[in-house]
């Protein structure tokens, strides 16, 4: 990760905190994010700064097909959105990238995992989910994208307090 990227992200965060003293997980954040990201150097940075599922996929240049060889496990219902266990298993071969997206988060792209040859295309982790929504797993193998989604119901949002 290059240094300018870090600085840009920090700048975005500070800007957001300064301008929107009362907003909370709201659309205002989203606007700051997308506006600030316009000059981002590469698609991955834009994807992480994107404020909707659609703009995340645009930044990744992805038009995913149904992920018939992809499974995503998320809890149907969670008490606390701050800690939601998720597991992606891909049955596509070769090196690939796995993406986790939480549709209703202020910044929906949660993480990217680059799976080199030899590592199983499987990852288990814990994420924050702002409110009940669909969670997406997207896999990029070569130039092809595949996606699946699962809904999760959240009682207390993971955005913090």
């Amino acid at each position: 990760m290059s240094k300018p990227t870090m600085q840009r992200r920090q700048a975005l965060q500070l800007l957001g905190a300064a301008l929107f003293g009362t907003s909370f997980c709201g659309a205002a954040w989203a606007q700051v994010a997308s506006g600030g990201a316009a000059g981002a150097a590469n698609g991955m940075d834009r994807a992480f700064a994107a404020a909707s599922l659609r703009t995340v996929l645009e930044a990744l240049n992805a038009m995913p097909l149904p992920g018939t060889e992809l499974s995503l496990v998320v809890p149907e219902r969670v008490e606390n959105g701050a800690v939601v266990p998720v597991e992606i298993t891909s049955r596509y071969g070769g090196p690939q990238d796995l993406f986790l997206i939480s549709e209703a988060n202020p910044f929906p792209l949660v993480a990217r995992f680059s799976i080199p040859e030899g590592t199983e295309p499987f990852i288990s982790t814990r994420i924050k989910v702002a409110q009940s929504c669909n969670i997406y797993a997207v896999v990029k193998t070569g130039d092809a994208f595949y996606a699946v989604s699962q809904p999760t119901q959240v009682n207390i949002g993971g955005c913090g307090g």
Partner: peptide
């Protein structure tokens, strides 16, 4: 064996299992 790019939406004390 694994490279990951995380966002703020990964839970506190990130846990990875692979």
């Amino acid at each position: 064996v694994l490279a990951a790019t995380l966002s703020r939406a990964v839970s506190e004390d990130p846990l990875l299992y692979f």
